[in-house]
Amino acid sequence: MSGHVPLEEMEALALGELEPAPAKEIEAHAGSCAACARELALIRAEQGLFARRSQPSIDALWPGVAARIAREPRIHRPHWARRIALAAAGAAAAAALLFALRPAAVRAPLAQEAAASESKRAIADALATLDRAEADYRRAAVVLESEYAAARKNLDPELARRCDETLARARSNLGDARTLAAQDVNARLRVLEGYAGYLRSLRSVVEQSQEANP
């Protein structure tokens, strides 16, 4: 091992997260490097402090939780979740169909006119399917964006700022990918994955908003 051991690796060693081989290597290095030996000793001392803290008793807390759970009304999925589920199901079905079409769309034609014509038609079908899938994702995004807009005004400003940043980043990535994809089937497939990621980000911020404003 040359140079010093990165702090995070020593931390992982102290927390018992490393496999035996790298752990042994770091220990061996620390045996001959005073700086790393000191750092490792400090990390272990910190870790020892945290490990020795007393455990708060939680026994008295369960009855209160149990009582509140027992009083809970039947759990309803939020209305947006049902609408999203429908839109996502539509998009998934479209994507599945697309995958079924894809081999024909991307198969190299064997220099046969009939095959070329079939391939052209398959690509057109694939693009139409992609358009439908994208439309489904966009509808799902509109539902979640409106949910977030409604909850946002009651959010802690710092949390709202972070949520805005997350969404702006996801939207920007998606926009760039869509522009570059044009009519390329494989690139458009990746755009669909981008939509799925954007929906996950949206769902996450909506859930955070709802947890913050029960």
């Binding site: 708060p56 939680i58 008295a60 807390l61 209160g64 939780v65 509140r68 759970i69 809970e72 759990i75 999925r77 859930e207 947890e211 029960p214």
Partner: peptide, 19 residues
Amino acid sequence: AADEGTQETFVRAHQRLGT
């Protein structure tokens, strides 16, 4: 407050287990 927060955390977790 930490005791109350712990209870609240688990009540919410129960409501949201499906997610």
